[in-house]
C-alpha cells in the first residue's frame, strides 16, 4: 500500500515569550497508507492538534519531513501548498467551523473557492455528499438550525467534497453524543474503505482503529489493544 501520509522524525517546540518552552512533537514518525484508519490519542495539550496541523501543511515543524502523496509539502510555496491542500487533504474539526451565513449546501461547497471547478459538478457532488450523510432534507438550512451531530456531518461532507486522498480529523466526536459519534466514525471508516487515508486525533480511547497511537510528552507510541 502506498503511504498517503508519511511523517519522518517531526519535531515541534513552542517557545512562548517569557515562559518555558514546550515540546509538542519530538521525533514523531508515522505513516498512513491508502485505506488506513489510524487514531492518535492523547490528553488535552498533548500535541495532537499540532500533529494534525503539521500533517495538513498548516504548521511547519521545526525538524523532520512531512510527505503527503510523496510530496514534501513544506518545500512548496505557500500558494502551491494551499492548492495542494485543497486538492489532497480534507479537515474535520471539533468546532465544525461552519460558516453561519451560508446554508448547508453552500457550506459543503466552500472548498470549491480554492479550486477552479464547474459549478454544476460541484453542486452535484455536494448534494450527493449531503445525501450520503443523511442530510438531504437540510440542504437550505443555516447551520444554526442543525443539531450538533448534523453540523459535524456537514463539516465531514465539506471535508470530502474535493475527494481528498487524506482526511485529518481533530476531535471529530469531541462534541457529539454516542449515537452521533458512531455515525461520524462510521462515515470516516467508509471513506477509508473507499481508498482514502484517515488520521484522527482524539482523547476518546474507545474509537476502534486499524492502528492506534498514544501521544505523550511529544512522543508517539503504539497502543496495543
Amino acid at each position: 500500500m502506498t503511504d498517503i501520509l508519511d511523517f519522518q522524525a517531526i519535531s515541534k517546540t513552542y517557545r512562548p515569550p517569557g515562559r518555558s518552552s514546550v515540546d509538542a512533537l519530538d521525533q514523531v514518525s508515522l505513516s498512513v497508507p491508502t485505506g488506513a484508519f489510524k487514531v492518535v490519542c492523547g490528553h488535552s495539550g498533548s500535541g495532537k492538534s499540532t500533529l494534525l496541523l503539521s500533517a495538513g501543511g498548516l504548521q511547519k515543524p521545526d525538524a523532520g519531513k512531512v510527505l503527503v502523496n510523496g510530496t514534501d509539502i513544506y518545500r512548496l510555496s505557500p500558494e502551491k501548498r494551499a492548492r495542494f491542500r485543497a486538492e489532497t487533504i480534507g479537515f474535520v474539526f471539533q468546532q465544525f467551523h461552519l460558516i453561519p451565513y451560508l446554508n448547508i449546501l453552500e457550506n459543503v461547497m466552500t472548498p470549491a473557492l480554492a479550486l477552479v471547478m464547474d459549478r454544476a459538478e460541484v453542486e452535484q457532488r455536494a448534494r450527493e455528499m449531503i445525501e450520503w450523510l443523511g442530510l438531504a432534507h437540510r440542504l437550505d438550512h443555516p447551520p444554526s438550525e442543525l443539531s450538533i451531530g448534523e453540523r459535524q456531518r456537514v463539516a465531514l461532507a465539506r471535508a470530502l467534497l474535493n475527494q481528498p486522498a487524506l482526511l485529518l480529523a481533530d476531535e471529530p466526536t469531541g462534541n457529539l453524543d454516542e449515537q452521533n459519534s458512531e455515525i461520524v466514525i462510521r462515515h470516516l471508516r467508509d471513506f477509508a474503505a473507499r481508498g482514502g487515508a484517515v488520521l484522527i486525533a482524539t482523547h476518546d480511547t474507545r474509537i476502534e482503529a486499524d492502528e492506534k497511537f498514544m501521544l505523550e510528552n511529544g512522543r508517539l507510541r503504539p497502543v496495543t489493544s
Binding site: P78, R85, F91, Q95, H97, T110, L113
Partner: peptide
C-alpha cells in the same frame, strides 16, 4: 476568525 481559519485550511488563498 473561525471562518478565516477554515477557509485557509481548505486551501483558499490569502489573496482571496
Amino acid at each position: 476568525e473561525s471562518e478565516i481559519g477554515i477557509l485557509r485550511a481548505i486551501g483558499v488563498k490569502e489573496s482571496v
